[in-house]
Simulated assay, not measured.
Amino acid sequence: MKKTIVLGVIGADCHAVGNKILEHAFTQAGFNVINIGVLSPQEDFINAAIETNAEAILVSSLYGHGEIDCRGLREKCDEAGLKDILLYVGGNLVVGKQDWNSVEQRFKDMGFNRVYPPGTSPDTAINDLKHDLGVE
């Protein structure tokens, strides 16, 4: 049984190329990918996850405002009945040079299960997702 994931670029970000690369990589890895595209508000991720019974939401952000765009997503997921959904985020999540450990911790404090720095290989997230979903 294929696991379904929702993939998209949050907020006012229009970086489409990386999103397409991720869609291809996760599809090739055997996931059913629901790609909601770019410029996506939190509600679009949540609605897509509900409609498709997804196991995970993968949020991409490359323009530096991911921290603002992602704030409150876990709470909205919980309110929508998605308490157990996996939340992954990756990309250029903050503006400027900041200590990655503190950036990662801030996103984990926001309820994200996995947080990826810029330049992370899709294989890393694919392996983590398979592990977290128990589909080794």
Rank of each mutant, 00 (worst) to 15 (best):
K97E: 13
N113R: 02
N127Q: 14
E43L: 10
W100R: 09
K108F: 11
I21Q: 10
T27V: 06
K83Q: 15
I57W: 06
G11H: 04
I50Y: 12
A49L: 05
Y116Q: 10
K2L: 12
K130C: 08
L58Y: 14
H131M: 14
A12M: 11
I126H: 10
G96P: 04
G64N: 00
V95Y: 03
S61W: 10
V17S: 06
K3R: 13
D109W: 00
F107Y: 14
D78K: 15
F45T: 04
D109I: 07
N127T: 15
G111N: 04
V95T: 05
N53W: 02
E75M: 09
A80G: 06
G111S: 02
Y63N: 13
I21N: 02
A29H: 02
I57K: 04
S102Q: 15
I5T: 01
H131A: 13
A54C: 03
L22R: 03
R106G: 00
L93Y: 04
P117S: 15
A49V: 08
Q98C: 02
E51C: 08
Y116R: 11
V95L: 03
N47I: 03
I85C: 05
F112E: 09
D69A: 14
L82I: 02
G37Q: 05
Q105V: 00
G66F: 05
L93K: 09
H65Q: 04
V135I: 15
L58M: 14
V59P: 09
G66W: 04
L87N: 00
K20P: 00
N101Y: 00
G64F: 01
G81T: 06
D132V: 02
A16D: 15
V95I: 08
S121H: 14
T4C: 04
V103C: 01
N101M: 05
I68M: 11
N53S: 12
R114H: 13
D69Y: 13
K130S: 08
I57L: 09
G134S: 07
F31K: 01
L39S: 11
A54I: 04
V17I: 12
V33M: 05
G37E: 01
D78N: 13
V115W: 08
E67N: 11
L73K: 07
N35P: 00
G111T: 00
L93A: 09
G66L: 09
I68C: 00
G91N: 04
Q28M: 11
A12Q: 12
G64H: 07
K2A: 14
L133T: 07
G119H: 13
K108D: 10
D109H: 07
L58Q: 07
H15A: 01
Q28H: 06
L62Q: 12
K83E: 15
I57M: 10
W100V: 07
K83M: 09
E43V: 07
A29S: 06
I57T: 03
I57H: 07
L87T: 01
S121P: 13
G66S: 10
V94W: 02
F112G: 01
A16R: 05
V103W: 05
R74W: 03
Q105M: 12
G37W: 01
K3N: 12
I21W: 11
Y116F: 14
L86R: 10
V6S: 04
K2C: 10
D123R: 14
V9S: 02
N53P: 05
V33Q: 06
E75I: 08
V59K: 11
E67C: 01
D44V: 09
T120Q: 13
V103A: 06
V135W: 00
T27I: 05
P118S: 13
